[in-house]
Design a protein around this nucleic acid. Structure first.
Length: 510
RNA sequence: GCGGGAGUAGCUCAGCCGGUAGAGCAUCAGCCUUCCAAGCUGAGGGUCGCGGGUUCGAAUCCCGUCUCCCGCUCCA
């Protein structure tokens, strides 16, 4: 039973995990804010990723590069070229095409047809007129030429209206449906632009990065030099990225402003295969050990590889709307570093002492969407189940079953009832525990209500001070998922919790 | 982008044969309460998504628009 996205969104809003951005102004599509609990959850996930990468691998270092970078970076990376294309949708087939390739392909078809027909005709007539000469008189050939010249003119002038007219006037059909009903041609900019420089007339267009990876590639020589690294080594970075998605959908799954956790691992050419396998499995293990169920995860190898990639796989999670990408692991060859070497004119090579030669390292990339990991944990953790009531009946209980290390509030301390002696003891315990764990104290409402309230926040441990505490200094520790309680001496509570909320121990399992 | 559904209190929703808004939960104050969303008293909180139209009067009828959700489509 998968929780519906709409239910999850309202739960996340109600509990303070995720809010729609600028809600009092009607919101902004595809942008969300993290509330008090969401901010905690998100930073815990980020922290465990950071530790798993940098702390656990002596050859991986961190980086925090700026969102704004030199515009040439995005020319080198291919983003400028790849994402400024005019697009059009066919109304019948619902397919979306790049207008230039659509028209070019159609022109090509027309020309081929004209050529075939003309050849046939000439052969039949046993004519001695040269093919090229006869061809120019063929209507389809003329149309093809006309299409091309108008396409080139419109593209050069970025005149999308002219392209729209061209599609209609020349009745360019959809390759899929044959339909000639098109939406207006529109240019989509994947990248957000802003201006560098305070004075408008001196300002230069600059992009908000669409991925954090390029900061790593661009800083490659500086990191290499200052961190005294030897191949193989990695650079890890967590940061915001921005994509002007045409349609932002599925809650926080596809956002226009989002956070990536990327690690680029630089290896000797020829060894990329084994490192690709290593990172594939290491990264999947990380997700599993944070509590994502193996059955909810799968690898999905890319069938069509990007031009720079040698191999690529996604780690997918079973969201309510299907298995979707959480993380990509890509074998990117030396494409990025070579491109930046070309565009910058700088050498981006590594001198390998053991080989006695220089080379451009190959790169294995692990790139995970932090927001998607948050969403995965909320999706999987959100649970509604029947629980016993005080009267002996059954009632629906809402629990957020997060891994204890991810819980925004890890411990809650309650006096069983709001009685001065209980309150004093409970406050004492709270004051001690807060130095070690994110801890909450609550005395309002009945104990049952308080338990349920913290179940919904994902708090794994609830400590209660009761009558017996006054006699023998013991308290109860309640487990969120099983509802089971154990009784511990007060002074043992901290070590008990520390054992269960120990990051070092968790890291050892990776 | 297309099709369907929905926007009323923080959340879930009722009210919609037109007469200027209600419930439960949540929040706050207090009482009561010895282990799983108990009870009582009181309080705060709403431009009924937005704009326009019809009307003496619109949450309710009409038009437009925005946003969200679901499906399809798209996604370096």
């Amino acid at each position: 039973m998968k929780v519906e996205l709409s239910r999850l969104a309202s739960f996340a809003k109600e509990q303070g995990f995720i809010f729609p951005s600028s809600e009092i102004y009607e919101g902004v599509g595809g942008i969300y804010d993290y509330g008090p609990l969401g901010a905690e959850l998100k930073r815990r996930i980020a922290d465990l990723w950071w530790r798993a990468m940098t702390q656990l691998h002596e050859n991986i270092v961190g980086l925090d590069s700026a969102i704004l970078m030199h515009p040439r970076v995005w020319e080198a990376s291919g983003h400028v070229e790849a994402f400024h294309d005019p697009l059009v949708d066919n109304k019948v087939s619902k397919k979306r095409y790049r207008v230039d390739t659509l028209i070019e392909d159609y022109a090509q078809q027309l020309e081929e047809r004209a050529r075939r027909e003309t050849e046939k005709k000439l052969r039949k007539k046993e004519s001695i007129i040269p093919l090229e000469e006869a061809l120019v008189r063929h209507g389809d050939y003329q149309r093809a030429q006309r299409l091309r010249s108008q396409l080139n003119t419109a593209m050069a002038q970025k005149d999308w209206e002219a392209l729209s007219r061209l599609l209609v006037e020349e009745k360019v059909p959809c390759p899929e449906s044959g339909s000639t009903e098109w939406t207006a041609v529109r240019q989509f900019h994947l990248m957000f632009t802003t201006q560098l420089g305070a004075l408008a007339d001196e300002a230069q267009d600059i992009y908000l990065r669409p991925e954090t990876a390029q900061g790593i590639f661009v800083d490659f020589p500086l990191v290499l030099k200052t961190a005294r690294l030897k191949v193989p080594f990695g650079i890890a970075q967590i940061g915001k990225a921005f994509r002007n998605e045409i349609i932002a959908r599925q809650f926080t799954f596809r956002m226009r402003e989002f956070e990536q956790m990327e690690m680029q691992f630089f290896v000797r050419p020829g060894s990329e295969g084994e490192w690709y396998e290593y990172w594939k499995h290491h990264r999947r293990r990380w997700h599993e050990h944070l509590g994502l169920h193996p059955a909810n995860l799968r690898f999905k190898d890319h069938e069509h590889l990007a031009h720079y990639a040698k191999a690529a796989t996604d780690i997918e999670f079973a969201f309510s709307f299907g298995f979707k990408e959480l993380e990509g692991i890509h074998s990117r060859t030396d494409y990025d570093l070579s491109r930046h070497a070309l565009y910058s004119g700088k050498k981006l090579e590594y001198y390998d002492e053991t080989l006695g030669q220089s080379y451009v390292p190959y790169v294995i990339e692990t790139s995970v969407g932090l927001d998607r990991v948050v969403l995965a944990h909320l999706s999987q953790g959100y649970t509604e189940e029947m629980a016993p009531t005080a009267e002996g009946g059954q009632e629906l209980r809402t629990i957020l079953k997060l891994h204890p290390l991810l819980a925004p509030i890890q411990v809650a301390v309650f006096p069983l009832v709001r009685k001065e002696e209980f309150v004093q003891k409970a406050r004492l315990l709270y004051e001690e525990l807060r130095y070690h764990f994110p801890t909450a104290y609550e005395e309002k409402d009945s104990i049952g209500r308080r338990y349920r309230r913290y179940d919904a926040k994902g708090t794994p441990f609830a400590i209660t001070v009761d009558g017996q505490t006054l006699e023998d200094e013991t308290v109860t520790v309640r487990d969120r998922d099983s509802l089971a309680q154990i009784r511990l001496p007060m002074h043992q509570v901290r070590p008990y919790l520390q054992e269960r909320l120990d990051i070092a121990q968790w890291l050892r399992t990776l």
